[in-house]
Design a protein around this nucleic acid. Structure first.
Lengths: 197, 197
DNA sequence: CGCCTACTTGGCATTAACTGCCAGAAAGGC
DNA sequence: GCCTTTCTGGCAGTTAATGCCAAGTAGGCG
């Protein structure tokens, strides 16, 4: 794996150093009040190189979403074919949860994102890309009975709803300082939507 | 009504001129490729004043959301008490539809928003503020039976889902160039989510 | 070891979105 | 017609982000 050698490795070290510095400064003085110049200075790297590692300031917080999106898509695809769209998505969500940062860090990041409008927007933008990629995967799982909406409409609606519930659950979770299990909150959100009566 | 006189009126004129110029240029050359300087020049106003009317470039597209949010909240509140949360929200959505721009313009704006990731994200972010304001209104409408999630969780999940469906329906509507009724699409999205089987 | 190539790094200049400041014009009340 | 209030425009400055180029550094090879 680590065949591409030293370049690769020192890159990882630099990325981690930048990330630690950035998150610390964001927590200390807020996202908007922290400049790229300051992060670069304290991380001992040039501003120019920082932008090569992280294309935007927002990526310092929402950066590793790309990888998680890939993982999510693959996990959902690999669920048994007889599993419903809802259950497959739920399984994907579960995997993401365990693959994510240590909970303490995830909590810190979540708070930062939900409290900072520009970050929140960028986070949503990344999430929208996951959604678009998941739609075909979900469509393949739908029984196309008569009197049902077009499969594409169904798939888009289901995926959008699942993400809305993930988002809601995450916000509640951050609001409770992580004391309530995130998966439980997700199930409650989905139950509130899907259970009639 | 127009008691605050000429200032108010010429402000409206300027705002409309800026808006028309901006939307036209965005449609012609894309959002990212259009600069504030160009919009100001072609609208015959200084860059500085443009920023006084519209705090950010994104507000040129997503600006009038504030007013619509107020209308939505009031409409939902005023639905009869025995109406379910879902039906009350649907009634609010219906009112927004008729109060919105002329459909041709709405279509153009929708396309712009859905084709421009940063705009789409900002648009959703503004809507999240509507969501937060609607949660207490919806919570008041929930029957709090036993074995149900906490009312706050329920309300948040329901509101988030409704907006996810509105968003999905609008995207589909723009994709079909407005040839399919938006309210119908919304109903289809919600049916895909709520109907089991 | 020395050399050549491939890739990375850092500094410099530039752009675009904003923001603060201040002088000057225009509107409204008297 | 004056005086206050409010708006406008220009100018300078900040910050995020991008392109360019020269200098450095890893890796393979003789």
């Amino acid at each position: 794996m680590s065949m591409t050698t030293l370049w690769e490795r020192s890159r990882q070290v630099a990325v981690q150093a930048i990330l630690d510095t950035a998150v610390r400064l964001f927590a200390e003085q807020g996202y908007e009040q922290t400049t790229i110049a300051q992060i670069a200075r304290e991380a001992g790297i040039s501003q120019r190189s920082l932008f090569r590692y992280f294309g935007t300031k927002e990526d310092l917080v929402c950066g590793d979403q790309e990888a998680l999106g890939e993982l999510l898509k693959r996990t959902v695809e690999q669920q048994p074919a007889e599993m419903s769209a809802w259950d497959a998505l739920r399984a994907g969500f579960e995997v993401i949860l365990t693959a994510n940062h240590p909970p303490e860090r995830a909590l810190e990041l979540s708070r930062l994102i939900f409290d900072t409008p520009s970050l929140h927007a960028r986070y949503i933008e990344k999430r929208l890309r996951w959604q678009a990629e998941l739609v075909p995967v979900i469509r393949a799982r739908l029984g196309s009975g008569p009197g049902r909406p077009a499969p594409d409409t169904q798939a888009k609606a289901i995926v959008a709803t699942v993400f809305a519930c993930i988002d809601t659950a995450t916000e509640l979770w951050a609001g409770h300082d992580g004391r309530i299990d995130l998966a439980d909150l997700y199930d409650q959100c989905l139950a509130a939507v899907r259970d009639h009566g």
